[in-house]
């Protein structure tokens, strides 16, 4: 992290005032961070947001929802001439700027990637930014400089895993967790939060929480993403490989950092009938027409497992929305 960024996160007067009103003796400061939810965290994935709020509160932070935020655009435009696709991200950056803030935290890997790449795209060429500003004539100009962060970066680089470990109330001893990164947190390299082929951000986090991290060869491979709409069979094939590899290595559950990955993993793993092994894949393609065993394991968001380990009560964990209930395996392994 840059010194500039470090200076920005130093406690400020408003945080001290907030702390004075906070009765909890365990909280030293309370940082309010501008937070960009995006569509998923406000709809089918709202339990992941609730869990994030619960976890961050226990770590002395508040995720303060960005006023008047709008859709990030979901997917980053890969075309050189498509300035229009950067209007939505830039409008969000203007909201951050209006707060006098410099950072924007997301929980969603898709939002993270789209916003972070757009911030980079407009900051590397003043002429592009000037054209976008001119187009949005009802808005103040965006001056540049907003830094987009995924919550995992904040946990790792600013709060630190040792600090998190010190606040664990339910250590995850005995639990085997397979982290699944997917694409958008790691690629391209210039916005990736870790090594694109050998990330360990989540492995370390869950080890500090007491769990055993299970490595899987498919943890950085695409889940099928939006192809789940047009070509669900492709997404299904991806998911069965990903879930099968984690399950065969003994994972009790898979932990994700993207709501779309979560949906795909949950949805498509359940598409294999439970009665017997059978053949999946495109029947015309011999390469993938292999027998597939049904593997069904719980898919949790990283915020859920973090909040669980930090002792958040059941109603703040969102476990009830999971397609495969994680509570039995957590009770069995951890005694949750």
């Amino acid at each position: 992290m840059s010194n500039e960024a470090k200076a920005f996160i130093a406690p400020r007067a408003s945080h001290v005032a907030r702390h004075a009103a906070d009765k909890s003796p365990s909280r030293v400061t309370r940082h309010a961070l501008p937070y960009f939810p995006g569509c998923a965290l406000k709809d089918q994935a709202r339990g992941f947001e609730r869990a994030a709020q619960a976890a961050m509160e226990r770590l002395g932070y508040e995720l303060a929802e960005l006023p008047r935020w709008n859709c990030c655009g979901t997917v980053y435009s890969l075309s050189s001439d498509d300035l229009m696709r950067h209007v939505a991200p830039v409008r969000n950056f203007i909201r951050v700027q209006e707060l006098g803030e410099r950072r924007l935290v997301t929980l969603c890997a898709m939002c993270y990637n789209t916003l972070r790449r757009s911030a980079r795209f407009v900051s590397t060429d003043p002429e592009r930014l000037q054209r976008i500003n001119a187009f949005m004539d009802e808005e103040p100009d965006y001056a540049g400089g907003v830094e987009v962060l995924h919550l995992l970066q904040l946990l790792r680089d600013e709060i630190g895993y040792e600090e998190i470990e010190a606040r664990v109330e339910r250590p995850l001893y005995g639990l085997k967790v397979a982290p699944y990164y997917g694409c958008m947190l790691l690629r391209p390299r210039e916005v990736g939060i870790d090594d694109p082929d050998r990330p360990e951000t989540m492995e370390l986090l869950f080890e500090y929480l007491g769990a055993e991290a299970v490595d899987s060869p498919h943890k950085v491979e695409c889940c099928g993403a939006y192809q789940t709409v047009a070509n669900p069979e492709i997404a299904r094939e991806r998911v069965l490989e990903i879930v099968g590899a984690a399950a065969r290595r003994g994972a009790d559950l898979i932990v994700t950092s993207c709501p779309l990955c979560t949906y795909n993993l949950e949805h498509h793993q359940l598409s294999v009938p439970g009665d017997a092994s059978h053949v999946t894949g495109d029947k015309s393609s011999t390469r993938h027409a292999l027998p597939v065993t049904r593997h069904v394991i719980p898919i949790l968001y990283f915020t859920q497992l973090l909040a669980f380990a930090l002792g958040a009560p059941g109603e703040e964990l969102g476990f009830e929305q999971a397609a495969v209930d994680p509570r039995p395996v957590l009770a069995q392994r951890v005694g949750g």
């Binding site: 998923a40 939006y226 709409v229 047009a230 949906y263």
Partner: peptide, 24 residues
């Protein structure tokens, strides 16, 4: 268009729908 659908598949989240319509 690269995306033809008779109906929006039930239960598919908006993050996938927006992604697919933007790309396809």
């Amino acid at each position: 268009t690269g995306l033809t659908w008779r109906e929006i598949p039930p239960g598919v989240p908006q993050i996938a729908l927006v992604g697919a319509t933007r790309k396809l």
